[in-house]
Amino acid sequence: MALSDLLLQQTINGLSLGAMYALLALGFTLVYGILELINFSHFNVFMVGSFIGLWTLQLMGINGQAVVMTGLPLIGVMMTALVVTMVLSGGLGVLIERLSLRPLRDVKGPAPMITTIGVSYVLFNIVLLTVGADSKNYPNPLPPVQFAIGDAVLRLREILIWVIAVLLMLGLHLFVQRSRMGKAMRATAQDPEAARMMGVEVDRVIVIAFFLGSALAGAGGLIFGLYYNFTSFIIGFNAGLRAFTAAVLGGIGNVPGAMLGGVIIGLIEAMGAQFIASAWTDVIIFSILVLVLVFRPAGLLGRVAPNKS
């Protein structure tokens, strides 16, 4: 394969991974922006979301890659899987906030963050004990359509992933920028006490942030399954850590930053695997993270001094 085709192929792969990491990174950033809390349970909300997607597709009669659909039925099945996965994953996020974080709302120090690690392990073990340790073949009704660009291959699943990710991120962007609740979220992130005195019910804003972040993580989990054709109880850790890195890289708390960070991490992972060795992926990703934080502590799009008083 020519170098240019290799580059093109890895750009396609990297953008697909990046789309997934970006969706996941948004959840870290939404919650951090409002609570200044790193929510480690997010790792495994993504994993559970992937299983919700799997079960939803199976309930619609799709098993493995045997059932191939086209046209409107395909769109219908995909939409249903996406919506169900997002709503249930979002609900899981809200439940986690209600049960484990709201009681700690006024507790200072690392207790809430440690709690999210605990919740993450609870989710991890529940899935391990109920569905087992083996990888599950992921239902995928997409026809094996692909386009050749030189020696590079663009598959239908990649196009689908990009479309889903771009639409979701566009939707989130419009929500945060334009809607009444989105503005309340931004105001709360910038000055929670002042927002409260405008009449914003901060607890509701927090619930919405958890719902949206977890719903996007669920969408990311579905994308993971569709992309790799498998899912497992273990997928949360690697993807979660990379997405978290993406959020920090872009500037945690910053929505466009999370998207940018996700795409950068995805591209690094793909290029690194091609031109160096996939065993080095984590070394490269975290070295770049360290470098960025040394020279831009607030991340690529983050503000150096958070304006809070």
Binding site: K183, A184, R186, A187, Q190, D191, A194, A195, M198, V200, R303, N307
Partner: peptide, 13 residues
């Protein structure tokens, strides 16, 4: 004021 929101958005808040 909400420092990263516009004047109009502050009025909306």
């Amino acid at each position: 004021l909400f420092p990263r929101m516009t004047v109009f958005e502050n009025l909306e808040m």
